[in-house]
C-alpha cells in the first residue's frame, strides 16, 4: 500500500468525511489542537530555558523535569490525536503540502534532539543538576529545541495559508 492510497483511504473513511463535512467539527478539533500544541511548546520552553541556564537556576534540572514533562507528554498526546484527526479530513492534500512536510520534519528533529539529550547528556545530570552551570551539550539541546518548536508553530500557521 502506497502512502497516497493510505491517505486516500483515510480521507474517504468515516472519520475523514465526518470532519471534512461537519460545519463545526474542524474548528473545534483545531482549537483543541492549537491549545494542546501551545501547552507542549510553552512547557518545553520552561525546560529549555533551564537547560540554557537562563532561568529558575534555584531548581534542580531533574526535579523541574519531573514536574513539567508529564504535562508536556499529556499535551503532546492530545495535540497529536487532534492533529491526526485534522489530517484525515484532507489527507491527500496535507501529505503533499510543503509547510506540512516541513512541520513533520521539524518535529522529527525535535524528537531526535530530545532522544540524544535524554540518553546521552542527561545520564550524568547529577553532576550539574543544581548549583552548577549546565554543560554545553545541555545548552545546545535546549537552544535547538526552542528553534525546532518555533519552526513547528510557524509551519503550522503557514499550513493555514496554503491549505485554504
Amino acid at each position: 500500500m502506497s502512502l497516497e492510497s493510505i491517505c486516500a483511504w483515510l480521507e474517504h473513511g468515516t472519520i475523514g468525511t465526518a470532519i471534512a463535512e461537519g460545519e463545526w467539527t474542524f474548528p473545534i478539533i483545531e482549537s483543541i489542537h492549537v491549545i494542546a500544541l501551545c501547552l507542549v511548546v510553552g512547557s518545553i520552553v520552561v525546560l529549555d530555558l533551564r537547560l540554557l541556564d537562563r532561568s529558575w537556576r534555584s531548581r534542580a534540572v531533574s526535579e523541574l523535569t519531573l514536574d513539567v514533562l508529564p504535562w508536556t507528554w499529556a499535551s503532546f498526546l492530545v495535540a497529536a490525536i487532534a492533529g491526526f484527526l485534522l489530517f484525515t479530513s484532507a489527507a491527500t492534500r496535507y501529505i503533499v503540502d510543503v509547510p506540512f512536510q516541513l512541520k513533520m520534519l521539524l518535529m522529527a528533529m525535535a524528537g531526535i534532539n530530545m532522544l540524544v539529550f535524554h540518553f546521552v547528556t542527561y545520564r550524568n545530570v547529577h553532576e550539574w543538576d543544581k548549583d552548577h552551570p549546565t554543560p554545553a551539550a545541555a545548552k545546545i539541546a535546549g537552544g535547538l529545541s526552542i528553534c525546532f518548536w518555533i519552526g513547528v508553530v510557524a509551519c503550522g500557521r503557514w499550513i493555514g495559508f496554503t491549505m485554504r
Binding site: 492549537v34 491549545i35 500544541l37 501551545c38 501547552l39 511548546v41 510553552g42 512547557s43 520552553v45 520552561v46 513539567v68 504535562w71 518555533i150 508553530v153 510557524a154 503550522g156 500557521r157 503557514w158 495559508f161
Partner: peptide
Amino acid sequence: PLVQTIHILCVSIVLSSVGM
C-alpha cells in the same frame, strides 16, 4: 503570517505559564 506566528508563540507562553 509572521505576526500571527508571534501571536501564537506568545499564546503558548501565556497558556503554559498560567497552566503551571
